[in-house]
């Protein structure tokens, strides 16, 4: 026993190094798994408020661009309103189950393999995990952590991200993931090789998951190839969103989510 203690005292620097290194390593491994990073995330009060303070400064640089985006969206919405007669009634029933809240991006990253965003709304604004985040142009990600006033978004530019999407033309669905390379291109997998696809086809959300309503634009097909077993396509999808400059986003809250979850549980 004495010798053991002596050993620790003699090598105390190394022991401390080892302990702390193991801590850091386990945190790293946790962060590589979806929904596991419990302690270290930027949606807490301290980091949130600091990002908020500095966001006020950087906001001014994007004002012009943001104005343009909002104008574009306004005109788009006006077009929809003026042509309202042509909309099918079914759509209105579907839309009523989603609440949409505007929010600001405090922090965004896109260079790492696992990227997250921090938004300025949290559980005080009734934001929950699994809520979807979109812009006027397309999807951004899924809420992953919330604190009282801030929330963290698992960006679609995250190797752990999986979003259910479909081809707009043929309604065939697949899983959208990211290979960690270009912030403009994501990969659509699990589409059967008998589906006819063409470069430039639009990809939209499928609505099969409770996170996103159907038919939110995602991107267009840039190129496609078969996977190793030659029965499924790997499709490169060019995102409509510019993920490198996000400012105003919308959080989609599904008001029927509890009902849907209850259904799924009874299925199992």
């Amino acid at each position: 026993m004495q010798q053991l203690f002596n050993f620790f005292i003699r090598n105390k620097t190394f022991v401390l190094f080892l302990v702390l290194f193991t801590c850091a390593l386990s945190l790293t491994i946790q962060s590589h798994e979806y929904h596991r990073s419990k302690f270290i995330h930027s949606s807490n009060q301290v980091t949130g408020s600091i990002y908020g303070t500095f966001h006020g400064i950087s906001q001014y640089y994007n004002l012009k661009n943001e104005n343009k985006l909002l104008l574009e969206e306004n005109s788009q919405l006006k077009t929809v309103v003026f042509n309202h007669k042509n909309l099918a009634q079914v759509d209105r029933v579907l839309e009523s189950t989603y609440n949409i809240l505007p929010s600001l991006v405090y922090k965004n990253s896109f260079t790492l393999p696992n990227n997250y965003l921090t938004l300025n709304m949290g559980s005080n604004d009734f934001i929950k995990e699994e809520d979807g985040v979109i812009t006027s142009k397309g999807i951004v990600g899924i809420i992953d952590k919330t604190s009282a006033n801030y929330s963290r978004v698992l960006s679609i530019l995250n190797t752990n991200s999986r979003v259910n999407v479909k081809l707009k033309k043929t309604n065939h669905f697949g899983i959208l993931s990211w290979d960690g390379k270009s912030p403009e291109i994501t990969q659509l997998k699990d589409v059967q090789d008998l589906v006819k696809i063409a470069v430039g086809d639009t990809v939209v959300t499928s609505g099969y998951s409770s996170t996103f309503p159907p038919n939110i634009p995602v991107g267009s097909i840039q190129s496609y190839r078969l996977n190793d077993t030659e029965d499924l396509y790997i499709i490169d999808v060019k995102l409509f969103n510019d993920m490198t400059s996000l400012e105003h986003v919308y959080i989609i809250k599904n008001t029927d989510i509890n009902e849907l979850k209850a259904l799924n549980i009874s299925d199992e």
Binding site: L20, F21, C23, L27, S31, I40, T47
Partner: peptide, 24 residues
């Protein structure tokens, strides 16, 4: 010194959502 370095890395990690990579 090692402990302060750990704190330094960890604070950067918290801000950047990078798990424990900077701390390590």
């Amino acid at each position: 010194f090692i402990f302060i370095s750990f704190l330094l890395g960890l604070s950067v990690d918290v801000f950047l959502d990078s798990g424990g990579t900077h701390a390590a």
